[in-house]
Design a binder for these strands. Structure first.
Length: 673
DNA sequence: ACTAATGTCCTTTTT
DNA sequence: GGACATTAGT
């Protein structure tokens, strides 16, 4: 072990992981046990012991996680005089992209390929679907999003369509042959048009890494590979690592099987459990001391996760000691829940807890809608993470499509989107226009000469001029974007409801563009690492700004807050009734709940509204009663303080009756499962 | 033949 | 509010 002074800041197990010398290392890190810290120190340690920073590869789940870890590593390493800048860090997808730009030729890619985000990929699927005439018929063909999900599951899990359909999409089994045809066409289309979807990035990297001649060279590029959130990687990612590590055994993966919540995206927990088999000679280090939550919170979360059938990590113990017990709050209805959250947030704020050290978590993005209205009404600033679809807003996609045409004029999706903005141009005319450009050797400028409908002539001219301007200079992306805006913003009023607000979005998009030096970079980064909160749009926030955090549980992974509120903890939302098809799915929902509760440091509030109002149902059924989440079993609730909010005495009895009814319901379910 | 407008059903989590 | 199918309108 090298003598580095700051090693004493770690506990025994963390130090073992950080100073591990050679060979594969699996770190099983429970929630709050200093996983990020361990990775950051590991990077710093490697650099301090003489490893070249650019020969270290750090793979994380989000780009933000990589940046956080690397800046922490930099701060640590600076104390012993080294600088770990130039470490390769990022998501599997962004690193794949970086490598594929370099090695495009080997895997038969056109160097100017563009990347499709999920929406684009679905649109391309829709295009192929329409071409094959799969729309009509007595039974409805699966929608384009479903088709893409099926495709993606096959690719990421490396399973055949014939296995995937019955298991995950049983209602689509009748379409097996048509789907095969569709996927063939989808893939051909991508190749013709020089575009890649997210899955391709991984698949091509895996191919590159396992190529007999190029693979070993690529592997030698890195002395050390470190992977965070290993429980949420899929089999393609595991194959990438195997290819990248054949003769080079230095690989460290960190994960927690109790926090595996991405199997819907084909994440494979076996990756982690079988790691020692895949990489012989693995050293296993387990981190069990929790530095985040106070003891009563851990008592609750330990009992919660104890309900899991499959479990490998042990109970966590807190080094932070006693504190208040978590509170289970039964609210009369959603407004009561909002009211409780807002007043409790303010009460903690009065006692000195900043808003940004408090977070409201929920299972699905739309579940915060009513709370958001209430926060706006009471003038409380907030940032919402997850579920935000800035890049999916129509006007943003329009503008990016214009840039993408300039980047890759074969990108038919971009063309279609732009052309159909114009009056009098629909599918047929757009196809004709695209054909016109194709015949001119894909010179985007020739669109000006296309004889479209009279109503669109002028705009087509303008588009031609715009393309001329974009292609004949090498302006910075921000300048190009301002040209695009000059062309596009006049069209806004005729296209959408609130043109002013949309124009403001585009102005902030231009702000984002300022930090990029090439158009390609800007486009790709935006797709692979989209801004995931509204704050990312307005640039770095002021130091004195403070806001409440709202987040989906999935986006909250890795985060921690002094005070955490989990709202809508009722059956149907947590577990989501969309995910109650199999016992595996329900078990994953339990882990989702576990991730939510383990985010809390000092105070934890679990809330659920007793009564929901439904707008859709007729006048006779304007509301329905919810049941407490099945995960909040008696054993779990024993560890919490219970209270009610906005419920009259007779309402309390209702709550008890509902609990009894829940038991009957689950007994019924067990007959079918 | 093609585009634009209307109607109906569904709505998880994300690189 | 979006996806998709159907119908009305040019």
């Amino acid at each position: 072990m090298h003598d580095v002074p700051w090693l004493s800041e770690l506990n025994r197990a963390q130090r073992d992981a950080v100073t591990h010398e050679e060979g594969p290392l699996l770190v099983v890190a429970g929630a709050g046990t200093g996983k990020t810290r361990t990775l950051a120190y590991r990077v710093a340690y490697l650099v301090a012991t003489g490893v070249e920073p650019d020969r270290i590869l750090l793979l994380t789940f989000t780009r933000r996680a990589a940046q956080d870890m690397l800046s922490r590593a930099a701060a640590i390493a600076a104390r012993s005089g080294s600088q770990p800048h130039r470490v390769w860090g990022g998501t599997f997808h962004s690193v794949a992209h970086r490598l594929l730009r370099i090695h495009a030729k080997v895997v038969g890619l056109a160097p100017e390929f563009t990347v499709l985000d999920e929406g684009d990929a679905a649109d391309l699927m829709g295009l192929a679907r329409a071409e094959l005439g799969l729309a009509g018929g007595e039974r409805r063909f699966p929608r384009k999003r479903t088709c893409l999900n099926i495709y993606s599951r096959c690719v990421n899990a490396e399973e055949n369509l014939a296995e995937v359909l019955p298991q995950h999409f049983p209602w689509c089994v009748d379409w097996t042959e048509a789907l095969k045809e569709l996927f063939r066409r989808y893939e051909a289309r991508k190749q013709q048009r020089h575009v890649m979807d997210f899955d391709d990035l991984l698949v091509y990297w895996a191919a590159l890494a396992n190529h007999p001649r190029v693979g070993p060279k690529l592997a030698q590029r890195f002395d050390h590979i470190l992977v965070d959130e290993y429980q949420d990687t899929n089999v393609v990612q595991a194959r990438i690592l195997q290819g990248m590590r054949r003769a080079m055994p230095n690989l460290m993966v960190v994960g927690d099987d109790a926090q595996s919540i991405y199997s819907f995206r084909a994440a494979e927990i076996r990756n982690m459990l079988d790691f020692p088999k895949h990489f012989p000679g693995t050293t296993v280090v387990t981190l069990e001391e929790n530095y985040r939550s106070r003891m009563p919170i851990l008592e609750t979360t330990n009992r919660l996760i104890a309900q899991a059938c499959e479990r490998y990590t042990k109970d966590l113990h807190s080094v932070r000691g006693e504190g208040p017990r978590p509170r289970l709050v039964t609210c009369a209805d959603e407004p009561a829940q909002d009211d409780y959250v807002v007043s409790t947030v303010l009460a903690h704020f009065e006692q000195g807890v900043l808003l940004r050290n408090q977070a409201v978590l929920f299972r699905a993005s739309h579940l915060s809608a009513s709370l958001e209205v209430e926060l706006k009404r009471r003038g409380i600033p907030y940032q919402k993470y997850g579920g935000l679809k800035f890049l999916e807003a129509a006007h943003v996609k329009d503008v990016l499509a214009l840039l993408r045409i300039a980047e890759n004029p074969r990108d038919e999706l971009a063309w279609f989107r732009v052309l159909k903005l114009m009056r009098g141009i629909g599918d047929a005319t757009a196809a004709a226009a695209l054909n016109h450009v194709a015949e001119a050797g894909y010179d985007a400028r020739t669109i000006a000469a296309f004889k479209g409908p009279v109503a669109a002539r002028e705009t087509l001219q303008g588009l031609g001029t715009l393309m001329h301007d974009l292609l004949s200079s090498d302006d910075l992306p921000a300048v190009q974007l301002s040209r695009v805006r000059a062309f596009y913003e006049p069209l806004l009023a005729g296209l959408y409801e609130n043109p002013e607000a949309r124009a403001r979005d585009l102005a902030s998009l231009e702000q984002i563009a300022v930090s990029y030096s090439t158009r390609q970079h800007f486009l790709v980064e935006l797709q692979l690492d989209p801004p995931n909160s509204t704050s990312d749009l307005a640039g770095p926030p002021h130091l004195d700004d403070d806001w409440l955090v709202l987040s989906t549980i999935h986006s909250a992974k890795g985060g921690e807050w002094d005070v955490v509120y989990l709202i809508h903890s009722s059956d149907g939302f947590l577990p989501s009734d969309m995910a109650c098809g199999s016992s595996e799915e329900i078990e994953e929902e339990l882990r989702v709940a576990y991730v939510a509760l383990t985010r809390a440091r000092d105070h934890l509030y679990v809330l659920w509204p007793l009564r929901y109002y439904y707008r859709r149902l007729g006048p006779s059924h304007r509301h329905g009663y919810a049941q407490r989440s099945r995960f909040l079993s008696d054993a779990v609730v024993e560890t919490m303080d219970q209270e009610t909010h906005g419920i009259a005495e007779e309402g309390l009895d209702w709550g008890l009756e509902e609990e009894e009814r829940m038991d009957i319901a689950s007994r019924m379910r067990s007959r079918w499962d």
